[in-house]
Amino acid sequence: MYRFACSLVLAVACLFAAPHAAAQDLPEPYVRLIADAATYDDGANFDAVVMMVARNAEGGDEAVMAAVRQVAPQRSAQASAALGQAGTMTLADNAVRPEPATMAMQPVEADAAAAASPAAPEIDPGWTGRVSAGLSVASGNSEQQTYNLGAELNREFANGWTFDSRINYAYAESAGAVTQDQLALEARGDRSVSERWGYFIGGQYDRDVLSSFDWTAFVSAGATFQAIERETLDWSLRAGPGVRYLMPATGSEETQFVVDLGSDLEWQITPDSVFISETTLLVAESSRAEQSFRFNTSVADNWAVEFEWRYRYEFEPLPGFEESDSRVTASLVREF
């Protein structure tokens, strides 16, 4: 192939170096180019070389055919057919030759055609989400019933925003007494401004009858950073200022300035199983940390089983209340 490339360069140079060659005698570089092309099995390559030389060299078809009969007589019929199909004209006919086509022109034409064709419309995936439910009943030496319900609703909008929301409710009784009564609602919108950076706005509401606060809520906004984005692993961080509202079990409503720090990690372990970690730290006069680990595995089309461990820590609980509480749930999930 190197010899072929060198011969092609010499042939092009011959257009300028030997414009007064004899009408029926091809310059030596052209002859070597034809001889070299004849050694390849690719017939289309030989045809292209023959037609190129006939278009550009003095002597035209007759000189090319004379050279072919001299250096590659076994290709004479092929060369004659190629020149006949091309319909090339010699300089002696005083005809205007067509502009030789080059490989470099083809991508330009393809790009122009692609630019002229209308872009395919983007498909709006619409709303997606899931619902979950879990139940645990114990009887005998101990009597306990535990219920948990959940739902998620998400969407990617055409303007670049993504919306994620979640609601969870857990209720438990033991020996006729309520041991758990928690409701949590979360919503957040995110938008990317570059490959890694973006911004968010969101909030959360929690009601826990048995905690030191009847209910708490906060809203915040800030920046997001995509630390890892791979096919099976996604990890994003967020930070921003906000406001937290608290209703103590005893006392009046409080409002505090907070800094919302968060981490969201999703690891696709297998095509049917995923691990999710969500971390939130509210830095304020009454700070709070919350951690959730979820493992979800598919059992059928759009059906899955999920196990979750959720832990919450209040840095400044009211007297008589514990700083932390946790729960473990198992749920059947239906995705849509």
Rank of each mutant, 00 (worst) to 15 (best):
T216F: 03
S165M: 05
I34T: 01
A66Q: 11
F163E: 02
V259K: 02
T88H: 06
S117M: 08
A217I: 02
V64Y: 01
M105K: 13
D36C: 14
F213Q: 04
N141Q: 11
V12I: 13
S263P: 00
G198F: 03
A217C: 05
Q24I: 00
F157Y: 06
R69N: 04
S236I: 09
A112R: 15
R55A: 12
T90H: 08
A23S: 04
V31T: 07
Y40C: 08
R97D: 03
N159E: 07
A17I: 15
D190H: 07
Y40D: 04
S252E: 09
Q74T: 12
A133K: 10
P121E: 09
D164K: 12
P319Y: 03
G59M: 07
F321L: 04
V193Q: 03
W267P: 09
G222D: 08
F4D: 00
G160N: 14
R294K: 14
Q204L: 13
Q256K: 01
A110F: 13
A17N: 09
F275R: 09
G126Y: 10
C6S: 06
N302Y: 08
G176D: 10
D206P: 09
D301Y: 11
D264P: 01
A44P: 07
E314T: 08
E266S: 15
R196Y: 07
G320E: 06
P319G: 03
D61G: 04
L281V: 13
W303R: 13
A223T: 13
A177F: 00
A5S: 11
S174F: 00
D164H: 06
D124M: 10
T128D: 04
S142H: 07
D47K: 15
S165H: 01
G203W: 10
L318P: 01
R97H: 06
G140H: 10
A21Q: 05
G43L: 11
F293N: 09
T329I: 01
Y2D: 15
P100V: 09
V53Q: 00
W127Y: 04
D111P: 05
E62V: 05
R3S: 08
G176Q: 10
E58D: 12
R207N: 06
D181N: 14
S252L: 07
V333K: 13
R32N: 02
G129D: 04
A119M: 10
D325M: 00
R55K: 11
Q70D: 15
M89T: 14
Q85P: 01
T162F: 06
E316V: 15
S263V: 07
D25P: 00
Y147W: 07
A11R: 02
A133D: 02
L265T: 02
E306I: 06
V219F: 03
R244W: 00
E253S: 06
R32S: 04
Q182K: 11
Q106N: 04
D301P: 09
